[in-house]
Simulated scan of single mutants.
Amino acid sequence: MLQELLGAIAAAGSAGVIYLAMAARVVKQYERGVLFRLGRVTRDARTPGFTLIIPFVDRLQKVNMQIVTMPIPAQEGITRDNVTVRVDAVVYFRVIDAESALVKVEDYKFAVSQMAQTSLRSIIGKSDLDDLLSNREKLNQGLELMIDSPAVGWGIQVDRVEIKDVSLPDTMKRSMARQAEADRERRARIINADAELQASKKLAEAAQQMADTPAALQLRLLQTVMAVSAEKNSTLVLPIPVELLHFLERGNQQHVPNGDGERPSD
Rank of each mutant, 00 (worst) to 15 (best):
G33A: 02
R43S: 11
Q157N: 08
I54Y: 09
F93T: 00
Q218D: 03
L145I: 13
R80I: 11
Q157H: 10
N64T: 13
R178P: 02
V161H: 02
P257T: 10
L217S: 08
E162G: 01
A89Q: 04
G39D: 03
V85L: 01
I53A: 01
A195W: 13
T69W: 13
I72F: 03
G125C: 06
T213W: 05
F36M: 09
I72Q: 04
A193R: 14
A182I: 12
S113F: 05
I190R: 07
V83L: 03
T47G: 00
V68A: 00
I240S: 00
A195D: 09
T224P: 00
L236C: 03
E162V: 15
A10D: 14
V91M: 02
A180Y: 11
M146D: 14
N233K: 14
Y92C: 00
T171C: 00
A180F: 11
H255S: 11
Y92V: 01
R178S: 08
E137F: 08
P73F: 09
T84K: 15
R46S: 03
A227Y: 13
D44A: 06
A177E: 15
L6K: 08
F50N: 02
M176E: 09
L168P: 08
Q117F: 02
G49P: 08
I191G: 00
D130L: 11
I53H: 02
L35T: 01
A116H: 04
E137V: 11
T171L: 06
A21N: 15
F247S: 05
A195R: 14
T235N: 10
V57R: 07
S265Y: 05
M22V: 10
V91Q: 01
Q29V: 09
A180D: 10
G261E: 06
G259L: 14
S134M: 12
Q179H: 13
H255L: 12
N140C: 13
L197N: 02
P169G: 08
A206C: 05
E144T: 13
E4Q: 11
V112R: 00
A11E: 12
M210Q: 04
N252W: 14
A15H: 06
D44S: 09
Q209F: 06
I72E: 04
E196W: 10
D159I: 14
A101K: 01
I123H: 02
Q66V: 04
S167F: 11
K202C: 00
D148M: 06
D266T: 07
D97L: 03
I67W: 07
H255P: 02
R37W: 04
Q29R: 07
K104I: 01
K104G: 00
A182T: 09
S229Y: 08
T79N: 05
V68E: 06
L222G: 03
Q218G: 00
F247P: 00
S127E: 07
N82V: 15
V158E: 02
Q254S: 11
K126S: 12
L168F: 06
Q179V: 10
D88L: 03
I54S: 07
F110D: 08
S167G: 03
R94M: 00
A98W: 02
N140R: 12
M22S: 14
